[in-house]
Amino acid sequence: MTRPRVNTTRSISSVLTYAGLILIALFALFPFLWTLAISLTDKTVTSGVSIYDFPGSLFPKVVTLNNFFAVFRDFSLSKYLWNSVVISGLSVIGTLLVSALAAYPLSKLEFPGRNIIFTAILSTLVLPSETSFIVNVITLNRIGLLGTYWGVVIPIIATAFGIFLMRQAYMSVPDALLEAARMDGATELQILFRVMIPLSIPSLTALGIFTLVNTWNSYFWPSIALIFNPELQPLSVAMLQLKSQLNHDPFNIAAGAMIMMIPVMVIFAFAQRFFMRGLEGAVK
């Protein structure tokens, strides 16, 4: 007699659990689903289609990709897309290079000052850096990089997170392997590029993906660093311009938003485990 009752309680509780899970998922995903629906809506099919026609605007009757072409045509989206690609690409390469290099002596070489330097690098995590953007603008202006791609990129590529992540990866490489390589006459540079880096591909991948998504999405710093040169703005910054400029046409705005979001979603779909492992939280 008790067993069926337990089963009933259990199934009721699992129905409630899933109801909760689905509600939270709707909260998290609704803005995307709506924006996606708007971006696919054929605005020409009937006069006066409104994005605010609920729940109709969630289920477009006629689906089209015209809005995507229109936003490329009416708003120079390809220019901003290219800027995003260049800035994110340079940031990823720069971060990987700087971190992979700096982490090697910090994990595998004995030299005076090692602990002080590592502590100094970690201390950047707690520095009051909320107004650093002001001085960085002055510095970039002085060295002539304000308003260039490099001006956006070089202040953000040396991070405690990246160096720490790579140091952790190198530390798991056995010392015996390095000793063997040294016996065979390998230089330290060769050891770094032939032994350490090939053995740390998963960490490099994780760091690359984080950097890519972060710089692709970042709004504040690029908007400051390119304040006098809007021509080089990435899509994340130009999105606000798109929002005000095409105010009358939410369909095209939605298409622009989707073009920016889709690459992130694709990366997330393939590299989900890197994000969900809470790696980012390890030091950030």
Binding site: L97, V98, S99, L101, A102, Y104, P105, L106, L109, E110, F111, P112, R114, I117, A120, I121, T124, L127, P128, S129, T131, S132, F133, I134, V135, N136, I138, T139, I154, P155, I156, I157, A158, I163, E188, L192
Partner: peptide, 30 residues
């Protein structure tokens, strides 16, 4: 080894000094 270690660290240290530590000090002065 010491020279090599600092050579590997140089890019990170220079960038951090210029864009992370210096702003805190110079920003306070500003």
């Amino acid at each position: 080894t010491i020279i090599l270690a600092y050579a590997f660290l140089a890019p990170a240290l220079i960038l951090m000094a210029l864009f992370t530590f210096y702003p805190v000090i110079y920003g306070s002065w500003l």
